[in-house]
Amino acid sequence: MIDELCLNDALLAGAKEIFETMIFMDLEESTDPEQKMEEDTLLGSITFTGTLEGCLTICCSSSCAKTIALNMLGMDSTEEINGEDINDAIGEVTNLVMGSVKSRLADSVGNLEVSIPTVVRGRKLENSLGDGANKVLVKVNIEDEFAAELSLLYRENPEQHSN
């Protein structure tokens, strides 16, 4: 049985690594348990299967997503960037964080197969795996300016355990 604290630590450490090395932005766990997201948000999601199955998501405001995309592409904050490029950047961040989390969990859960990331934009977005799923949610601050949420929705996969 995987420890929820272990998943929480892997998710936070994986995201911090990616934001520092590939996006050049500071990401810290929020100290405010009541932290709320803005209404207009982007949700990047990537699924995984193995001894654990589920999905990793990153949810942030559209203004935060735009800043992330500009930083990733080395663009100035005054430059124009279209919605497609912003979605692509958030998908790639989700993929990178999943890769980092996956390598951190390799010793405890073995190899995880991952999907291609998807990104949706909307209000009050939520992911669900249905009944019996567990959820690890980490609220973070990016550059002390933007609120964002990282989550792992998962369930253990007994078929993979017995193989």
Binding site: A69, M72, L73, G74, D85, D88, A89, G91, E92, I116
Partner: peptide, 12 residues
């Protein structure tokens, strides 16, 4: 790479 963002990051 299927991500245009990642292609640009790699190029840079």
């Amino acid at each position: 790479d299927d991500s245009a963002t990642m292609r640009k990051i790699i190029m840079r």
